[in-house]
Amino acid sequence: MLQVSIYRYNPETDSAPYMQEFQVDTQGRDLMVLNVLELIKQQDSSMAYRRSCREGVCGSDGMNINGTNGLACVTPLSDVVKSNKLVLRPLPGLPVVRDLVVDMGIFYKQYERIQPYLQNDTTPPAIERLQSPEERDKLDGLYECILCACCSTACPSFWWNPDKFVGPAGLLQAYRFLADSRDTAARERLAELEDPFSVFRCRGIMNCVAVCPKGLNPTRAIGKIRELLLENAT
């Protein structure tokens, strides 16, 4: 029997959050954490969590698993469980709506702030815009972000200033468009990032890199943005 301890909070009935203990029979299988949650939901249907693709591409089920942020659907128990104990909490630093469900509003707002869409006012050709494989390679490691928020909610700078610091996820996407040979708005994009908070709150501690379930490297992207800012200003 796996011991599972889960953060519970329903604002309608609970005056404060608490940890609830569950026993789950895994029948010795190396389940994913999401499978464990499904088994628990069969015991207690009021357990709330988000999930969708169950294969690590939609980014719904980011949560704090034994102290580390990750996606429940692609985290096998063997990776995280020591001494038969699994502790699940919502992603840190965001308001809790209920149980493991957090309000991601401010995370999305920071994503929207970097204008996450290609900008190019020139008239497009009748076919696609051409891009060499080398130019396209620059987008690898950037466009794959699934907006699960594991990185930004592992970042102390984002905890302290979620309204002003764009956070690793948003900055990774900011650089995804700065690095795109088809985008023509680099100057305007950089002007929006030059203040002391949006980019420069990153202190390079690389929590984001450590938790990213897709193996992406926001710290490197932030470094590249700093280089571009410097190039642009000197």
């Binding site: 990032l193 203040d195 002391p196 949006s198 420069f200 700093r226 200003a233």
Partner: peptide, 10 residues
């Protein structure tokens, strides 16, 4: 802040 610019501060 020191310089009004994150880049200069940095």
């Amino acid at each position: 802040n020191f310089s009004r610019s994150g880049l200069s501060d940095w």
